[in-house]
């Protein structure tokens, strides 16, 4: 119980700090890859603080409420994860959080926001099967959906669910909103819809979206970490290193690909999920 409370509190406090720093590193590394100097690592925090000082404007009286729910449910998702709860519970709550964000964008009835919302929804459909399959893989490998149980499994889950790990890393590109699959709310000006879903968010509302993403990213890296947790310090170290390497890999991919069409996102994500999921689960069943 104490461990649970400590890790939840740690997540609540450290989550946005780590997430923000990672976002800062992302910008720095990206800048270097593009032969620029880039902003200081603390820049994402400056940006968010600046957003909170903007004029309070909105396009209707419900949008900000939905965004608030998005933030709350994203944090709840992370808390459930770090409290060692069931992975399925975590993923289902995450879907609810994304739905709030999508509905927020739809509620504005703005052309750009709605185009972004529809694309975001497509992305959810693209990655959802792989995410669910990875939870099932953990269960079949360790006998439990609970993060707390998986954490103390004797062998690294990775060795049993390697296929699902690869699949999950693949769809992380979508989850981290990286090119070539940054369809819905791209930061980069290399596509026709810039900002997309975020078009109608401003000031504190936009700040909430940013903070929610920091929380979400930390939780997602936690998921990568989980593949290597085996109750030993060595396992934890490997987990953290692999999680950071994955993050770096996504930055690298982000900078090496132009955006692809939406068909590529759903085709590739579903084929990867079906192929790797079926093979890996079948092997698990036989062992």
């Amino acid at each position: 119980m104490t461990v649970m409370i400590i890790s939840v509190v740690a997540y609540l406090i450290l989550g946005p700090i780590v997430g923000g720093l990672l976002a800062g590193c992302d910008r720095k590394i990206t800048a270097h890859m593009q032969s620029r100097v880039g902003p200081p690592i603390r820049q994402p925090f400056y940006d968010v603080f600046k957003l909170t000082e903007k004029e309070d404007i909105t396009v209707n009286n419900v949008q900000d409420f939905y965004v608030l729910c998005f933030l709350i449910f994203t944090i709840v998702t992370g808390c459930l994860f770090f409290a060692g709860q069931s992975l399925l519970l975590v993923f289902f709550t995450l879907t609810t959080a994304s739905t709030f964000l999508i509905v927020a964008a739809y509620s504005s009835n703005s052309p750009y926001a709605e185009a972004g919302a529809a694309r975001e929804l497509l992305q959810v459909m693209a990655y959802e099967p792989m995410v669910l399959l990875s939870a099932i893989g953990f269960y079949m490998a360790t006998g439990s959906f609970d993060v707390s149980q998986i954490m103390t499994s004797e062998t690294m889950p990775f060795f049993a669910v390697w296929g699902l790990f690869i699949g999950l890393v693949f769809i992380m590109t979508i989850k981290f909103r990286k090119s070539p699959f940054d369809l819905s709310m791209s930061e980069h000006a290399h596509q026709e819809l810039v900002g997309g879903l975020k078009t109608e968010f401003s000031g504190k509302t936009l700040a909430m979206v940013e903070v929610a993403h920091w929380y979400e990213n930390v939780m997602l890296l936690g998921l990568i970490f989980l593949f290597f947790a085996n109750g030993t310090v060595a396992g934890y170290v490997i987990g953290v290193v692999v999680a950071l390497l994955t993050y770096f890999l996504e930055i690298f991919i982000d900078n090496s690909f132009a955006r692809m069409k939406w068909q590529a996102a759903i085709n590739s994500a579903w084929i990867v999920a079906a192929a790797l999921g079926a093979v890996n689960l079948f092997v698990l069943l036989l062992v």
Binding site: D56, I57, T58, V59, N61, F65, S108, N109, S110, E200
Partner: peptide, 10 residues
């Protein structure tokens, strides 16, 4: 409920 100023969409 909102106290914010409501502006036209983009």
């Amino acid at each position: 409920r909102t106290n914010k100023k409501i502006v036209p969409i983009y």
